[in-house]
């Protein structure tokens, strides 16, 4: 019997559970390595070569090279691990979050200044409830 996933119908949201964790293990461990300045320097010098040191799938490596955070999360990446990549790039959490929404940086910043994304039925997934 598999475990319940009552969180599967929340729109625009990946819950990092045990299945995602297994899928993303090597991707996330690569991210952890960027907590050392020497590793960040080696990664920046030759991203492909550095990624090839890790047992990641080609898809995961490509998603990192593309800085496609939604794709990385679909492939098991967790946002707190992935944060090491955009921190290495000198970019903020808000920058990274904006790229995941399809909004421009300005549009996203303005949405946050106006009180953030509103929790309507569509965003909470309540419409799909019984």
């Amino acid at each position: 019997m598999s475990l319940d996933k009552p969180y599967d119908n929340i729109p625009g949201t990946v819950i990092f559970d045990a299945d995602m964790s297994r899928k993303g293990f090597h991707l996330n461990q690569f991210c952890m390595s960027l907590m050392k300045a020497d590793n960040r320097a080696r990664f920046k010098a030759d991203e492909k070569a550095y990624l090839n040191e890790w047992k990641m799938t080609d898809e995961q490596k490509q998603a990192v090279l593309d800085r496609d955070y939604n794709r990385m999360m679909a492939l098991g990446g967790n946002i707190y691990f992935l944060a090491k990549i955009f921190s290495t790039d000198g970019l903020s959490f808000q920058y990274a979050a904006a790229t995941m929404t399809g909004m421009s940086q300005e549009e996203y910043r303005d949405m946050m200044l106006a009180g953030g994304r509103k929790p309507d039925n569509e965003s909470t997934g309540d419409q799909t409830d019984e």
Partner: peptide, 17 residues
């Protein structure tokens, strides 16, 4: 408090909650 840092729903804030 309320926040979502990931995916297309990033930026969610729920002041009432």
């Amino acid at each position: 408090m309320s926040h979502q840092l990931q995916g297309p729903r990033a930026g969610l804030i729920n002041q009432e909650f």
